[in-house]
C-alpha cells in the first residue's frame, strides 16, 4: 500500500465529510432551534442537484447551475416552511415524521413526473476537470479539491454567522429560550423561516456539488439524509461544532473503512473472503461508531447533557 493511495483516500474521506457537513448543518439547526425532525431535508438536496443539472444543461454554465441550485432549494425551503412545517412546531415528533415523510413522497414522485425516471448528468466545470499535482508528485482531482475548499469556506462562514452576527445571536437565543426571544420583540416566525431556508440552501448546494460526481436521480438525497442523522446523533442535536466534527469523523471512517478493512482482513484470511467480510463490515462501520458514541455519551459528543 503506497502512501499516496492512503493520502488520496484521506482526502476522499474529507470531501465526503464536508459534503455531509453541508447537509447536517441545516438539519441540526432546524432540530436545535425549532425542535423539528425533518425527513424531507434529503428532498431539498435532490432539488438542488436537479436544478443545477437542468440549468447547467440548458445554459452550459456550471456557476449558473450552482446559483440555481441555491435559489431553488431556498425557495422550496421557504415554501415548505410556510405551508407545512410551520404547523408542525407545536406537534409531537410522530406528526413531524409523518408529515415530512409525506413531503418526501410528494417531492420524489413530483420530480420523477417532471424529469422522468432516467438520471441526469452534471458535467464537472472545464477548469477543474484535470487533476491538481502537488509538489512531490501527488495528484488529486481538482474538482474534489474544490469541493473540500468550498465546504470548509462555508463551514467557516457558518461559524462566523452563528458566533459573530446579530442573526446568529437570535438563532442561539431561539435555541435557548424561544418564548423569551419572542417577548423581546424578535419576529420568531420570520427567524424560523430564515433558518429553514438557510438549511435548505446548504442542502441544495451539497446536492449540486455532489451531482457532478454522481448521477442526479430521484431518491439520491435519502442515503445522505440518513448519514446526516447519524452525524447529528454523534455530534449532538443543535451543535454546529458537533456536526462538523462528526461529519469529518463519519466521512473518514466510511472512506477509510472501505479501503482499509478488506486489506486488514486480507492479512489473516484468503483474499476473496477478506474482501467480503471487509466490505460488509465497512458498510456498517459508521453505525458501529454511532453505537459506540451512544454507549459512552447518549446525548452525543457535543450535546448538552440532560
Amino acid at each position: 500500500m503506497s502512501l499516496s493511495l492512503l493520502l488520496e483516500q484521506i482526502l476522499n474521506g474529507l470531501q465526503l465529510g464536508v459534503m455531509l457537513f453541508l447537509m447536517s448543518a441545516g438539519l441540526t439547526l432546524v432540530f436545535g432551534v425549532m425542535g423539528l425532525i425533518n425527513l424531507a431535508h434529503g428532498s431539498l438536496y435532490m432539488i438542488g442537484a436537479f436544478a443545477a443539472a437542468a440549468v447547467a444543461g440548458a445554459t452550459g454554465s456550471f456557476l449558473l447551475g450552482l446559483g440555481a441550485a441555491l435559489a431553488a432549494a431556498a425557495v422550496a425551503g421557504v415554501l415548505v416552511e410556510t405551508l407545512v412545517i410551520r404547523r408542525l412546531y407545536a406537534r409531537d415528533h410522530l406528526d413531524q415524521v409523518l408529515a415530512t415523510f409525506a413531503l418526501i413522497l410528494i417531492f420524489s414522485e413530483g420530480t420523477r413526473w417532471l424529469f422522468g425516471s432516467f438520471p441526469l448528468y452534471l458535467d464537472i466545470p472545464a477548469p477543474l476537470k484535470g487533476p491538481v499535482t502537488f509538489p512531490g508528485g501527488f495528484a488529486y482531482p481538482g474538482y474534489r479539491l474544490a469541493i473540500i475548499t468550498i465546504g470548509l469556506a462555508v463551514a467557516l462562514a457558518l461559524f462566523w454567522l452563528i458566533a459573530r452576527t446579530r442573526v446568529g445571536v437570535r438563532i442561539r437565543a431561539g435555541q435557548a429560550d424561544r418564548e423569551m426571544v419572542a417577548a423581546l420583540g424578535v419576529n420568531i416566525a420570520r427567524l424560523y423561516t430564515m433558518v429553514f431556508a438557510l438549511g435548505a440552501a446548504l442542502a441544495g448546494l451539497a446536492g449540486a456539488l455532489v451531482g457532478a460526481l454522481q448521477s442526479v436521480q430521484v431518491g439520491m438525497g435519502e442515503p445522505v439524509l440518513i448519514l446526516a442523522f447519524v452525524i447529528i446523533v454523534i455530534g449532538g442535536i443543535g451543535s454546529i461544532r458537533g456536526a462538523f466534527v462528526a461529519s469529518i469523523l463519519v466521512g473518514l471512517t466510511d472512506t477509510l473503512g472501505r479501503f482499509l478493512l478488506p486489506l486488514a482482513f486480507g492479512m489473516v484470511m484468503e483474499p476473496s473472503a477478506a474482501n467480503i467480510v471487509g466490505t460488509a463490515l465497512a458498510s456498517m462501520a459508521i453505525y458501529i461508531l454511532m453505537a459506540a458514541v451512544l454507549v459512552v455519551r447518549p446525548t452525543g459528543l457535543f450535546g448538552a447533557a440532560t
Partner: peptide
C-alpha cells in the same frame, strides 16, 4: 441501544440501525 435515548434521537437511531 436506542432506548437509552428518547424523542428525536430514538427516531434517528432506529432509522440508522435499520439502514445498517
Amino acid at each position: 441501544l436506542s432506548l437509552r435515548t428518547s424523542g428525536v434521537y430514538f427516531i434517528m437511531i432506529t432509522l440508522a440501525f435499520g439502514q445498517m
